[in-house]
Write a protein that binds this DNA or RNA. Structure first.
Length: 626
DNA sequence: ATTAGGG
DNA sequence: CCCTAAT
């Protein structure tokens, strides 16, 4: 509750403080280090990340050089557009084949650090020689993390230096200085404030949440190594690169609103890029398109001022223990009091940079359009998220099930282990089960024609199942509802099911939780499900027997088990059938209905019209004489 | 909830 | 298919 409320409050009327400003002299020159979990990250992933960082800083065409050993290689020229279009930076980089990956790793590992030069990309050789190095990036790689920092920018103004500057997350929260008690364990805190963590998707929680990057490690990684690298040639205006107070205390890096906007944009790209890892590519591309509104859920992206977090569509939160206690329905002794009365030491500061959400598995014909893919994914995600979300708490990858535990008892208060803390977004189980059962739902399912477009156009989640040939199943359902099993088999065999399933191993994904209210407001139009011939036949048969005014009975008689056919649908279908029968065959569209059936439609319609007229006449006669 | 009819 | 008025 409080949890959410707090975020909400942050989202509304949030204004990035104008002050304090980062000292002018330093602005644009030093960038906070970016921490990247390397884990199983491939070296080029890291490289790409670096490149991306640079790109974000530069935001225009550039190329990246890295220095390792004695050689300098051009990694790639990277264009901003490549991010904008969401294409994989990695592939763009790697396709260049300018250096071989394994050797890169070797150098990386052995040296522990790599220097990147960031140069303006200029096409002509002359220009190139004249090109200046705009930034130096130092990258120190440990087992678990890489620290990437943009070191020196020659032309901060043009570089839009703000793009890597960070702002404090919460103007309302006092930010203890790095190195003091609060931040001692405070890798978490520093991350709150701008240490961008790119959580590489890893299935292994333990690893990904490794606690090795505590503040000690952090400082260690930077101080000794990154400082005078002799191989850093030219243009090293600032000759130092170390986690000095100013460098790390980005709380001092404030930006004007206008300055931040572009950052936000670019960080979206960051998000995209992040997810362009092999294993998660599918997911990410999918989620990327899911532009959920985040207004009413309290998780507005605007709730966080950290531009990185914000634009990565991550969540950020700084809470107190009291807050959490409330949230869990128990109040600690101080719960309910104002935070300010509680010693800051007792607060647990949390930075939620991402939630784990269930994996969505989506299979879609290759000839489906991108548009339909988007819609499909949107539907799938909406279906999962709109069902209501639970929040799970993970500590060291293990779920904390006992809601009554205090934060302290759970061990979360141990700031040293804060990095082990994770949150998950979990859909309603009941709903999911329902969705899972879709595939075995005996009721006839959408038939998706070769174009695929109609079925994917719109529709409810559980309707989005394509079957190469479901005519039979329709028939079954219509005529022999007692034998659904054959239908099931057919479905299982024929369908390319678009079935979201719960991931067996959820992977960290940054996502903006869906605003439930928004989702429910948007009542999806039912998916279009053209009547099959067998359905038409069943309809005609029933109407011949029952007439045109008893659609409920028609439904009961012929479409009892076709849940998606309402009596209104049947009535409408009859209407169109009559119309179809009256027009010339050339004007008819869709799956052709046998003329024989249309003839029966016409005659039945005529017959029952007469009957109706007759009965009304009779009724009138009954009334008149009275 | 159903029916009927326009959109 | 949707929306709605009228039952």
């Amino acid at each position: 509750m409080v949890f959410q409320k707090r975020m909400e409050s942050g989202s509304i009327g949030y204004k990035i403080p104008k002050k304090p400003r980062f000292p002018r002299s330093a602005r644009g020159k030093r960038y906070p280090p970016k921490k990247v979990e390397v884990g199983q990250m491939r070296p080029f992933d890291l490289l790409a990340t670096v490149a991306e960082e640079l790109l974000l800083a530069k935001k225009k065409s550039c190329r990246l050089l890295y220095e390792a050993e004695e050689t300098t290689s051009t990694i790639n020229k990277i264009k901003k557009e490549q991010f904008d279009t969401g294409s994989s930076l990695k592939s763009d980089v790697f396709d260049q084949g300018c250096c071989d990956e394994s050797s890169f790793v070797a150098r990386f590992v052995s040296r522990g650090q790599v220097t990147f030069n960031f140069e303006e990309h200029l096409s002509s050789p002359e220009e190139r020689t004249a090109a200046s190095t705009l930034a130096l990036v130092k990258c120190h790689v440990s087992e678990k993390n890489a620290f990437i920092g943009i070191h020196n920018l020659e032309d901060p103004v043009n570089l839009d230096a703000k793009s890597t500057a960070l702002v404090s997350s919460d103007s309302g929260v006092e930010i203890p200085p790095i190195g003091d008690h609060h931040s001692a364990g405070g890798s978490s805190f520093s991350s709150v404030r701008g240490d961008i963590e790119l959580l590489v998707n890893k299935d292994d929680d333990e690893n990904s949440l490794g606690r090795t990057h505590g503040s000690n490690r952090y400082a260690k990684a930077f101080k000794p190594h990154c400082t005078g690298d002799g191989r850093v040639r030219k243009l090293t205006k600032s000759k130092y690169w170390k986690p000095s107070r100013e460098a790390m205390d980005y709380g001092e890096l404030w930006n004007d609103d206008e300055e931040i906007k572009p950052v936000f944009r670019s960080r979206k790209l960051c998000y995209t890029r992040q997810r362009t890892k092999r294993s998660s590519f599918k997911r990410s591309k999918l989620f990327e398109r899911c532009t959920f509104s985040s207004s009413n859920r309290g998780f507005s992206s605007k709730a966080v001022s950290d531009p990185f977090v914000k634009d990565c569509m991550k969540l950020d939160y700084i809470g107190t223990r009291a807050d959490l206690s409330d949230a869990h329905g128990r109040s600690g002794s101080t719960a309910g009091h104002t935070q300010s009365y509680e010693p800051v030491e007792n607060h647990v500061k949390l930075s939620i940079k991402s939630f784990r959400v269930p994996e969505l598995f989506i299979e879609i014909p290759a000839n489906a359009t991108i548009g339909s893919l988007k819609r499909t994914v949107m539907e799938a995600v909406t279906a999962i998220l709109s069902g209501g979300l639970h929040v799970g708490v993970l500590l060291k990858g293990k779920k904390i099930k006992d809601d009554n535990k205090t934060i302290l008892q759970a061990g979360i208060s141990d700031t040293d282990k804060l990095d082990n803390l994770g949150f998950t977004l979990e859909p309603n189980l009941s709903r999911i089960q329902h969705h899972n059962s879709c595939i075995s739902d005996p009721e006839p399912l959408t038939k998706i024609h070769s174009t695929l477009a109609p079925a994917l156009d719109i529709g409810t989640f559980n309707a989005v199942i394509s079957a190469s040939d479901c005519t039979e199943s329709d028939h079954d359902s219509v005529h022999s509802p007692t034998n659904p099993s054959s239908t099931v088999d057919k479905m299982a065999n024929n369908s390319k099911a678009l079935v979201p399933i719960l991931a067996l191993n959820p992977v960290a994904l940054a996502v903006v939780p869906l605003s439930n209210s928004k989702a429910s407001e948007i009542v999806q139009r039912r998916i279009r499900r053209p009547f099959s011939v067998s359905e038409v036949e069943a309809l005609v048969l029933a109407v011949e027997k029952l007439g045109t005014g008893r659609w409920r009975d028609v439904k009961l008689r012929a479409f009892e088990n076709a849940k998606h056919r309402t009596y209104v649908d049947l009535k409408d279908k009859w209407k169109t059938l009559v119309h179809t029968a009256r027009i010339s065959p050339q004007q008819r569209r869709g799956e052709p209905v046998p003329q024989e059936l249309l003839d029966r439609v016409l005659s039945a319609h005529a017959y029952w019209s007469r009957q109706q007229a007759k009965s009304t006449r009779l009724a009138e006669q009954c009334h008149r004489p009275v």
